[in-house]
């Protein structure tokens, strides 16, 4: 039976925790709004880019020399997995669900005898997976110092991926991130970057034969494809940012609720034992007086 003082201390500490989780929830809610607008305003560019790429790929002559970024190396021996996670914890299952998807993919690829390489963007995924895949890890890119995620951040990561590709480090590149669906649902997603997975080709065949290019198709593709990778990375990072805040918000919401319940229970216990003590003292006094 804990003493009254113990109970009081416990209640005070749970109250302090609740204050923190509540504050974190509110901060996450405010950040979520910003992250969501950023993710939404980045969508048009990615969509247009995709449209342009589809029409460009459709207009290419069959025999044209296209960059490997579009078609891949033709092998699928070495896989590069780019894992985007958060820099901080305390956001529910956000980081671990991405990590689980990566772990499943990596183990099944390894079981097929392929080589796997991991590139981490964000510290948490690295923390979770570093023990299991120590030898597969290429690099960790931390985003801690980045205030707001912009195209520059994504471009430096995109350039790194393209550089690795040009150096023949991998054949297939897949990007892992969490898609923001709503505050309570975030879907861990794997998206293939190289070779480019274009949506159904039949969609964009309107008047393609007469397209004119300046300077020419190859030049355009050469600049467009690396840029597309950066854009996809940017999209992943922005979706991730929104997902992280959403996950944190709902995690902190339930944490505050749990703390509230805990406080209620402990207060009840505290009051009961306080009353029991008063009753006990009264009985002692009364029975003492009667004995006289």
């Amino acid at each position: 039976m804990p003493s009254l003082k113990d109970l009081r201390n416990r209640i005070a500490s749970v109250k302090a925790t609740q204050k923190i989780t509540k504050a974190m929830q509110m901060v996450a809610a405010a950040k979520l709004r910003r992250a969501q607008t950023a993710a939404e305003s980045a969508r048009p560019y990615a969509e247009r880019m995709e449209k342009v790429l589809v029409s460009l790929a459709g207009a290419l002559d069959a025999g044209a020399q296209v960059s490997g970024l579009l078609t891949g190396t033709g092998r699928d021996e070495t896989h590069l997995l780019v894992v985007c996670t958060a820099e901080r914890g305390l956001c529910g299952a956000f980081n671990s669900s991405i990590a689980r998807l990566v772990r499943d993919t990596a183990t099944s690829l390894l079981a097929q005898g392929k080589t796997v390489k991991l590139l981490f963007v964000g510290k948490k995924g690295h923390d979770i997976l570093k023990r299991q895949f120590e030898r597969q890890i290429l690099e960790l890119i931390e985003l801690r110092s980045v205030r707001t995620i912009g195209f520059d951040t994504a471009e430096s990561i995109g350039r790194k991926i393209v550089g690795l590709y040009d150096a023949g480090e991998f054949d297939v590149c897949t990007l892992f991130f969490s898609k923001f669906k709503s505050v309570i649902t975030q879907i861990p997603t794997a998206q293939q970057l190289i070779p480019l997975a274009l949506p159904s080709e039949g969609a964009a065949t309107e008047g393609l034969g007469v397209y004119e290019f300046e300077p020419d198709e190859e030049q355009i593709l050469k600049t467009l494809l690396p840029r597309n990778i950066s854009v996809q990375v940017l999209r992943a990072l922005l979706e991730n940012a929104a997902s992280e805040q959403g996950a944190r918000m709902s995690a902190m919401d339930s944490a505050s609720r749990n703390a509230g319940e805990m406080i209620k229970k402990q207060t009840l216990k505290y009051n009961r034992s306080r009353q029991a003590m008063i009753t006990k003292e009264l009985i002692e006094i009364i029975s003492g007086a009667e004995a006289l």
């Binding site: 460009l56 008047g207 393609l208 007469v210 300046e214 355009i220």
Partner: peptide
């Protein structure tokens, strides 16, 4: 500002793509 020189796009321009 196209890579090969400036160009003006008006309505009814032919399908065209430029850096």
């Amino acid at each position: 500002p196209g890579s090969e020189g400036e160009l003006t796009v008006l309505a009814g321009h032919a399908p065209f793509m430029s850096i």
